[in-house]
Design a binder for these strands. Structure first.
Lengths: 197, 197
DNA sequence: TCTTTTTCTTAAAGTAGTTTAAGAGTAATC
DNA sequence: GATTACTCTTAAACTACTTTAAGAAAAAGA
């Protein structure tokens, strides 16, 4: 089954007994989502931890002016969820939307809590995952407060080449914190500069 | 002893048996650091998870141009460490420095790993701590890509009033990703605007 | 208390990034 | 395969923020 992919992912951190895997598998549900579908909208409670098998989703927040800002992309073998809402069961501030037709696996809040109680190793796995994601965000904060849009775009291209070729520039600009128009100028500068150096 | 403060902190997440507390306590070491002292410098390995009892420290990264950028402040009852270096045992990219004379508690890498093995609940505690810190950073990323320096400063004042009154504006500016000169202009605008509204 | 160091402010000139608008190019959907 | 919807580019005018420099104020250290 598809859920084997998620078990494999867990086993990159720690190995599990057969009965533990069965228990985990029993709590995983799969879903296919079309492009542009929202699996979470601001105001709703985030019920699921979502793992991406194929495709790509984004987590974004709409500001007071109505503009959308991409906080996170999740492609193959990555997690996406509004952690605050998921744990507090309070309405989410953020939205999760498929940017491509995507296959996802989900674990519902009560099921994950059940698993935490019955498969203790999962605490360790999710601790490591949370720390990995924390480090990723810390690098992004550093880039955002220290580098220009131009430099951040170059960093993005190096760090996420698989995304750079898949996502529309409007989505990348929103992630970088610049306008699509300015990204277009940056791209022009880069291609104009090619051949030099 | 001072380490009781850290045990209390852990018990805000989960309660522990007496023997577990003893085990944890035996692996905690205390230290007083003077203002400006570095407890971690870029190039060294981050050996400790550091918990602040009093005072305030900052984690910062120096960019290629030699400018320092504040990634994180940690005051009373907060954690500070370079997680990447701590877990990988590779040289750190970042620096940790006391901004005030501070009392800290530390757990060395090998001791924390020992504790993870012998007090399983700690995995859960540090999972929750990592998730909390992740959410904090996510909010900061949102602020940085969506709001102006002016708006970010106002948010900082509301969110960290205890820090705003303690830290020099140069440090706050570095955290917000603006120059101290521009922060000074923002502050002038704010005081000039007071009385209105 | 005195001295040194750091921090804060002001302002002018420059750069990075936004806004608006409009046309061309691509990709999605029926 | 046609049509509709989105995406990309360009440019001019504007705003947010930086740089440089220099003097005043405040805090740290001895």
């Amino acid at each position: 089954m598809k859920s084997q992919r998620l078990i494999n992912h867990f086993e990159t951190y720690l190995s599990f007994e057969a009965h533990e895997k069965e228990l985990i598998e029993s709590r995983i549900v799969g879903q296919n989502v079309k492009r542009k579908t929202h699996i979470l909208q601001a105001g709703e409670v985030c019920q699921y931890y979502t793992f991406v098998l194929s495709g790509c989703l984004r987590l974004y927040i709409t500001d007071q002016a109505g503009k959308e800002h991409n906080i996170l992309f999740a492609a193959e073998n990555e997690w996406i969820s509004d952690i605050t809402s998921f744990h507090s069961m309070l309405p989410s501030q953020s939205n999760i939307q498929a940017l491509e037709p995507s296959e996802i696996l989900q674990i519902a809040q009560q099921d994950l809590y059940f698993l935490y109680l019955n498969v203790l190793k999962l605490d360790r796995v999710f601790k490591v995952i949370a720390e990995e994601k924390y480090v990723e965000l810390q690098n992004r904060v550093f880039a955002t407060i220290s580098a220009t849009g131009h430099q951040r775009y170059l960093t993005f291209l190096k760090q996420y080449p698989h995304l750079a070729n898949r996502l529309p520039n409007t989505q990348i600009a929103s992630y970088l914190g610049i306008t699509p128009e300015f990204l277009s100028m940056i791209r022009k500068e880069i291609t104009r500069g090619k051949g030099k150096i």
